[in-house]
Structures are given as structure tokens and as C-alpha cells.
Design a protein around this nucleic acid. Structure first.
Lengths: 340, 340
DNA sequence: GAACGTTACGCAAACGTTGTCGTGTTGAAA
DNA sequence: TTTCAACACGACAACGTTTGCGTAACGTTC
């Protein structure tokens, strides 16, 4: 086993000082060509690579981005990570991923651990519990210590920092608008509980679209789901009692679940019921019928978030100007909607 | 903005030495109660936390695990990461994730970068290109430098290290066996090209099961797919010309694609064609019909891999004994298979 | 009052870098 | 021969920690 070689070892081996070795490898003009060549050859032979940790300590920069998200077994979050990773990599950064599992405490702990020197900044999406508690002291604190934070998707306006989101309300509005323009009269909404910020915004988009077209917004037509595992009865009740001709669901899972339940009840999709989902993930693409959905480009979102963070990291002067960037969405028409 | 406080600053503030502060905070018996209390109170007030980077440099341990996988927008890999993260976290480790995007070069670069002090060890799954080239020098090198590596799923026997896999061949055998026992006579295989190790093993499992039941293994009944985007014609040809009554697909995507194509051609699943997939991901669960599949527990796989790595990291003496652990699989019966 | 033990702290090295500054040796100009 | 720049290199500090060891001050013992 040959352990990694250090400057000190090279110096000892060649009988020069550590500084000479360091300077030679960085091609300093201070060192003679002879010595430089000798050192460089030796370093190459022994495959010398500077120790990242030592560099981090010296430079006070880790070239590492901390990502804190609720979960990773989730198509959208996975695409965002993918986008972050790509941009980070292009800029010489690595990413360290922490999962909050929707828990406030774990989110706090993860941030605190990473903030102690492990990363230069954060990209994060809030856990449900954090959104519910509205407690953002851990994020404020990190920002206060001079570490930039970029929030995406599940954000809060209570924290001043860069943000990347889609225009959830508008995207939902357009989806519902699409249904209305196609002649649907009885449009139901399957959404999350209100404290999930994106759920709330999408709900608002639905409401606004309905109202703008002078269509009634009835509580009977709105199902708010807290726990996906126990949502069946609620949706079945909706289908049975209110007979919607279209459903707008605020995520894939709600969409596909609605379709499955409808099919089981003998309601044909899309002939008797059209369904639009949100998030263009695996489910929307591969379920039968495939699902018409609002596509949010996670790769792009992650990429932008990473770029914003890196830009801020590599800026010398502090910039108190924070921006919120909108990633455009578009409706992907598939098989789950019919045009009447 | 209040930057993070260091031992030095506390020492200066309280007019004691750095060592006194350090020892006080670690509750050393060398320091008087008075001083300890004073220092601890001050540290708490200023929310002192040791700098991870400095600790890493000193201890030559980063408490970080490097994960290198082909992609992350992939249900199975996401579950594995989730499993790794959980166990890592319980043991005070963080994970840093790198994606090879199935590229050999990127895999090599990622390993080299992380090996320069950023992580204590690796958990990885080989990129397709690496499996094709059979070039594992980057992994050998890392191991040679004393960093443990645990490989999972896409492994190679050419490298000596701990491994976590499912018994791909056996799992495939059992799936095909299940079909045979249910009376299917004309069982096709949709698989990958041979250099993908798991694809090959699953193919072998199919072949063995067929042979053990004295059923013919015909090349016509085996479709090897290199590129998912251009596989339609091959599968259509299979369905049209060879009229299988069942298909065993070596992954979800192949399974769902086969079902979709069959349905499009008017072949009813499962009435006229039964399909079994591999990997119990989102697609299998939510497509219609839902897909009978071989479930490989990614969470468990990741968890075991992490535990193996950590065990080795926290062992003092070197242990040249490497183990390959098998994670059990089981068949999840759903709607895509009928019992004749 | 000398010898010794205990207490409570500080010094310094180490981890692996980088970069500033100081210094010894050369060769050339005066 | 003296002076001085240019050259080539080394010493050292710094980044933030931990820890072994040295030591000043004090109190006890005979």
C-alpha cells in the first residue's frame, strides 16, 4: 500500500525545502528550471496531488456545495440534484447531499453540521415540517455567518436569499385554463394541505382560473390530502358524489392515484374524466394512460440554483441584492386529457 | 454578520491560551473548574463549534463517504443513496455524491478528486463504459492508497473489495421459473447488451431456468437492447413474429415499454401476454397494469454498503478479508401477469 | 528552610498547504 | 577589489484543531 505522497515527503526525498517543492509545482519564477523539472518529474512519478482538506483549511474555501432536500427518492428532487451536480462540477465544485426526510430537526442538524466548515454554501428546499413551523432560524444563522443560501421550489419569503422557483400559481392557472378552454365544466382539484407552499400556490392558481372564467369554486370539488396512503376514500368520495369531468392534481402521485381510483370505479380516463398532473416525472410518462402534466424542468432549476450560488461565492464584495428566478413551465399534453 | 468564532478568538477574549480553551471545552481534568465554566459559558454564548476541516486535517479522517453512481434520476439508485445516507448519518458520516453519467472518464475524475482527502472511502456502482472497458485502475489505485471501497449492484470481480449485490441470476431464475410453473410456454427475454454485468447475470438466470425445464432457448426470443430510445422496432418484431405468451424484462423500463408496445399492437396484458420486470420502482407500481416485478431493496442495499464501509473505516487493523453480501429479492405479484 | 507534590496553565508540534520575506551565492559593473 | 543586483532557495507564519510535555506557583512535609 502506498499512501498519498505529501510535499514534505517529496522535499525530504529530493533534499530541498517544502516551499521549493510547492513553488516548483506551481511553476513559480522563483525556482530554477532545473529544480522545477526535477521536482515536477518526481511529483508526477509519485502521482502527487495536493490534499483538498489542507487547501480548504488554508483557503477557507471548500469548493463544496451543501444540498439539503426533503427526500431523494423523488423524481423531481433527483433531477434538481442532477442539475446542480452538473453545474457544480463544471465549476470545480462537489456536492454533499443531506436529506431532511421532511423533518425540521434533521434539517436543522444537517445545516449546522455542514455549516461548520464543510461547505461554502447551501442549496435547499424546505421540509414540510419547517414550512409548517415557519421556523427559519437555522437558515438565518447560516446566512448571518456569511454562507450564501439558495432556496428552490419549497421556499419561504421570510428569509432573504436567492431563490429559484417556478411560477406555481401561474402554471396551475394555465393548466386549469386549458381545461376550461377545452369545455370542461366540472373541474376538481386534488391538492396538498395549505402549509406546503407550492401546494398552496397551485391551489390559488386553480381558484383564480376558475373565478376568472366565472366558474364556481366549491369546497366539494377540492380535496386536500395530507397523507398519500390514506387518500383513497377522499378521492373516491369526490368522484362518486361530485362527478367531476376533469381533475387538476398538484403532483404526479395525486394524478396517477386519481386515475387509478377512477378506473377502478369504472370511470374511463380520458373519455369520461380528464386529468392533469404537475411535475413531469416517470409516472406521468409511463403510466397508462400517460398523464398530461405541467412540466417543471428540474435539471434547469438545479442548474440555475447552482449557478446563482457559485456566482455569489466567487464574488468578492458582498451583494445584498437577492433575486428570485422563475423557471418557465409548460403543459405536456398526453393521453389523460381529451378535447371534448 | 458574525463569522464563526474560533478557539483563538475565545482565547484572546478570555486572556487564556488556545490550549486552555480547547481543554476546557473537552472537559479536561487539567483545567480548573472555574476556568472551564468560564470558557464553556463563553463558547456557548458565541455558539462555538469546532471547524470540521481543521479536525479532518488533524485526525486524517473526514467522516465523509464518497458515492459514485452512474445517475441519480433513477429510482433504484435514489433508493440506494437514501439507504446509504441514513446509515451514514446514524454513524456521524456525511455523503458526497458524484455522478459518472455512465462515463468512464467522469468516473475516474470524480474518484481522483475525492480521493485527495475529501472522503474516507467510497461506495460505488460502475458506469456502463467502465464495465465495457474493464479498466479499473482508478479503483485499484484508491484501494491501494488505503481507502476502502464498497461496490454495489454493478460490480466487477476484477477488483478485490467488499461488495453488495442481489443474486441477479437466481432472482431472474425464480422469475422465469414462476412463469414456467404458471404454464407459459413461450417466454421471451428483453435484456441489455452483455457487458452490463447485471443484465448478463439476469440473462443467464433466464437461460438456466428455461434449460432446467427442458424448454428451448431460442435467439429469436431474446432481444438485447443497447439504447432504450431505439428499441421499439426490435420489441415489435419479437411480439409480431414470435408471439410470446410471456416476457421477462431485466428492468422496469424494458417491461413497461414492452407492455406499451404490446397494448398498442392490440395485445392485451395480462390476458394475452404476461410481463415480469425487474426493480420495484415507481413505474412498476403506478403504470397500468401495474407490473409484476423482482423487487430489489435499494434502501437495504445502500444501508448494508454503508455499514460495511463504516465497519472497515473504524477498524484499526487492516483486514484483507473481503466479503460479498447478497441482498434477498422477492417477486412482487401485480397486474401484469395472469395465472393461466 | 529545603525538598517535593500538586495544581493549573502555556508552549509547541502536528496535520498539508501557500506565500511573504529574508538570505547566501553568484556574476557583472564601477 | 568593491558594490550591488539578480537569482535560487529556505525559514516561517498562517489556516483551526488536539495533546504531550514543560513549568511556575503554591502548599505540605520533615
Amino acid at each position: 500500500m502506498k499512501r498519498k505522497v505529501t510535499l514534505k515527503q517529496i522535499a525530504k526525498e529530493l533534499d530541498v525545502s517544502i516551499s521549493t517543492v510547492s513553488k516548483s509545482l506551481r511553476n513559480s519564477a522563483e525556482i530554477s528550471e532545473d529544480t522545477k523539472l526535477k521536482v515536477q518529474a518526481f511529483a508526477k512519478l509519485y502521482n502527487y496531488r495536493p490534499n483538498n482538506i489542507a487547501l480548504s483549511l488554508k483557503n477557507k474555501k471548500t469548493k463544496t456545495i451543501g444540498i439539503i432536500i426533503p427526500e431523494i427518492v423523488h423524481h423531481f428532487f433527483a433531477t434538481v440534484i442532477s442539475g446542480i451536480e452538473q453545474v457544480a462540477n463544471e465549476n470545480g465544485y462537489n456536492v454533499i447531499v443531506c436529506l431532511s426526510n421532511e423533518s425540521f430537526d434533521k434539517e436543522v442538524i444537517n445545516m449546522e453540521v455542514l455549516a461548520n466548515g464543510s461547505t461554502d454554501g447551501f442549496i435547499m428546499s424546505l421540509s414540510k415540517e419547517t414550512q409548517q413551523k415557519k421556523d427559519f432560524h437555522h437558515i438565518e444563522e447560516v446566512i448571518n455567518q456569511g454562507m450564501p443560501v439558495v432556496m428552490f421550489d419549497r421556499i419561504t419569503n421570510d428569509v432573504l436569499c436567492d431563490k429559484v422557483i417556478i411560477d406555481d400559481q401561474r402554471a396551475a392557472y394555465e393548466a386549469v385554463d386549458f381545461l376550461i378552454n377545452n369545455g370542461f365544466k366540472n373541474i376538481a382539484l386534488v391538492t396538498t394541505v395549505d402549509y406546503v407552499s407550492v401546494g398552496k400556490l397551485r391551489t390559488d392558481g386553480y381558484t383564480n382560473a376558475m373565478q376568472d372564467h366565472d366558474m364556481p369554486v366549491s369546497d366539494n370539488m377540492i380535496v386536500k390530502i395530507e397523507d398519500i396512503d390514506n387518500c383513497a376514500t377522499k378521492i373516491e368520495k369526490l368522484l362518486l358524489e361530485n362527478k367531476p369531468d376533469a381533475i387538476f392534481a398538484v403532483n404526479e402521485l395525486f394524478a396517477v392515484t386519481s386515475i387509478k381510483l377512477a378506473t377502478k370505479m369504472g370511470i374511463k380516463v380520458p373519455e369520461e374524466l380528464s386529468v392533469i398532473g404537475f411535475t413531469d416525472g416517470i409516472i406521468s410518462q409511463f403510466s397508462s394512460p400517460s398523464i398530461t402534466t405541467v412540466s417543471q424542468n428540474g435539471i434547469k432549476m438545479g442548474g440555475r440554483a447552482a449557478q446563482m450560488l457559485i456566482d455569489r461565492l466567487e464574488l468578492e464584495e458582498e451583494n445584498e441584492q437577492y433575486t428570485t428566478e422563475l423557471i418557465e413551465t409548460h403543459l405536456v399534453e398526453r393521453e389523460s386529457t381529451s378535447t371534448l
